[in-house]
Design a protein around this nucleic acid. Structure first.
Lengths: 325, 325
DNA sequence: CTGAAAGCGCTTACAG
DNA sequence: CTGAAAGCGCTTACAG
């Protein structure tokens, strides 16, 4: 279906301003080689006619585009929504037009949505890949388009990646926990790259503190109920667990439900912002989504200048100590 | 900066397939007047060359576009993120390409982002307007583009609007509350159209139940802390309040913090989904964002067919009784 | 500093 | 059912 008419073109503007099409185009593209007088005439004409620039035509002719697609795995995850909003702000301030799409945690949707977007001449794809994204597919995409991945690492992919220092998150939260407890401590996460990095940090902290009894579980799911069940089962075999490092707030919530008495001995490696003024339930590592957005923009800009972009950017994380004991 | 080369065009496809450009174009636009044999040759050539359709060129030539912009006031609001995801799914299934942008609760950002998007030849704007959106501005936009507003009503605007039946939400939650309490009951909301509608439902329920002592407060803000403070102040003057109807979960949370003893006498007119498996804290009205998305698509389709779209669509709300008492 | 001309990759009548 | 031609609204050398 056609949109409502918007037929005024560069030609009409040129006509009204009494200059040529080229001059109007030069004004539009912020060229410095237009006389101030002509420029003003053009600007007035644009205003008078209500002219709106047609970027499709411009992009087609010039072969350039300032459209950046942000492909989010799950927009209903507050952390991701926050990240998307920051990315939009950053890209916007660098004069890109951001378009956000959600792949709803589905590999198929991610593939099809990116394929569709290719037809719109986007300059780059910034993608938070869904679980089980294929490295080959990603690398192929990256060979034709500018691609940056965020937050989740796709194993063995060569695409540049910006993500929080999950290892450090695991390390810091574990250290904090170990200032109080030095008994049996356990890490609970899933089988993602993220949890692997957190677990590595957890282990290094345990060894640094000379904890002898620690273990790592990596088959949790990101569900409060499943985590609760899992921890209940774990407690049967290992009733002496005295402290728990969780991959994120959701798992932590489940563990807490299973073992309320451990309230002060549960930490989370990844805080999920829920409601700003509600405080923190657990001592946790907080990811700075704004910083991740900034870094992503930098990588993008390097890529567009054909510099070799850093393959992996690790963004710092901060420890947030639970306020109420 | 240029995107990585993608130089294969309809012409190359035609050449390889041994047909003319027109024939390729007809295949691409799903025309039925192409011989099956030719079609297959074209499809094979497309596959072999890795051709990708250039929608900018197509849109420019045809004057049509299937791009729909979804402009969200606040993407970090879980309810809005959920709505955006549903809208994307609905639009996608109707073969539109959705682009989501966030205006971050700022009128200026909303204006500038929509102005930018105009340059990309979008077929329609679906917007959740930020507070204080000017009706004149909106109506002007709607006179040039297809516009649908969602969730928040802009007073005195003529743009079509799809929103939950807030009045009913206020009515149902109040009735539910009044099955237990028949004492002094109060409504707390802000000065938005939404709260006004909820308050109207609240009042009609109070009168239906012949409650004599009820009052309405409409100067709350959507903040847990502010709501807590406000309710504390309210309690000083009206210590006999025995039940509270809140505009949403955030305010309800604040009220609960101020008066924990009222736990079973607080209801919320608008549930904000936070974590799927955590259950409901308050008895509340739940908005069906999927239904809102569906209705929006229907209105859009009517608009595009130049039928007169319904000016206002009220979507049903459901009462969710708190499970644990 | 400005104008005339070519062309980006498509679609769309219009003949054949 | 298929091909040759015009044109969507721009940008970009290239002369003037």
């Amino acid at each position: 279906m056609p949109n409502k008419a918007k037929s005024v073109t560069i030609y009409d503007v040129a006509h009204l301003a009494g200059v040529s099409k080229s001059t109007v185009s030069l004004v539009l593209t912020q060229s410095s080689k237009v006389a101030a007088k002509s420029k003003q005439k053009v600007l007035n004409a644009i205003d008078e006619l209500g002219y709106v620039y047609n970027r499709d035509a411009a992009a087609m002719r010039s072969g350039r585009s300032n459209l950046v697609a942000v492909v989010i795995d799950d927009l209903t995850n507050p952390l991701m929504a926050e990240l998307a909003a920051h990315l939009e702000q950053q890209l916007n301030s660098a004069h890109f037009q951001t378009i956000i799409v959600s792949s709803n945690n589905s590999v198929e949707r991610q593939t099809s949505t990116i394929n569709n977007l290719k037809e719109y001449n986007v300059a780059a794809f910034i993608v938070c890949p869904v679980a089980n994204t294929c490295a080959l597919w990603l690398d192929k995409l990256a060979s034709h388009y500018n691609v940056i991945t965020l937050m989740h690492e796709v194993p063995y992919s060569a695409a540049p990646c910006v993500l929080p220092d999950y290892n450090k998150a695991g390390h810091l939260t574990t250290l904090e926990l170990l200032t109080n407890t030095l008994n049996t401590v356990i890490f609970i996460g899933d089988n993602s790259q993220t949890s692997k990095a957190q677990a590595a940090g957890f282990i290094s902290a345990c060894e640094q503190k000379k904890v002898t009894e620690y273990c790592v579980i990596t088959h949790a799911e990101n569900s409060v109920l499943q985590a609760k069940q899992l921890f209940n089962e774990t407690l049967v075999n290992q009733p002496h667990i005295s402290a728990v490092v969780c991959a994120n707030d959701i798992i932590a919530q489940g563990v807490l439900a299973a073992a309320p008495h451990l309230l002060n001995s549960i930490v989370s490696c990844q805080h999920v912002p829920v409601r700003k003024d509600l405080g923190y339930t657990f001592t946790c590592a907080v990811l700075n989504t704004q910083e991740i957005a900034k870094r992503s923009l930098l990588v993008l800009q390097e890529q567009l200048q054909n510099n070799t972009a850093p393959v992996k950017t690790l963004v710092n994380v901060n420890l947030q100590i639970r306020e109420t004991h």
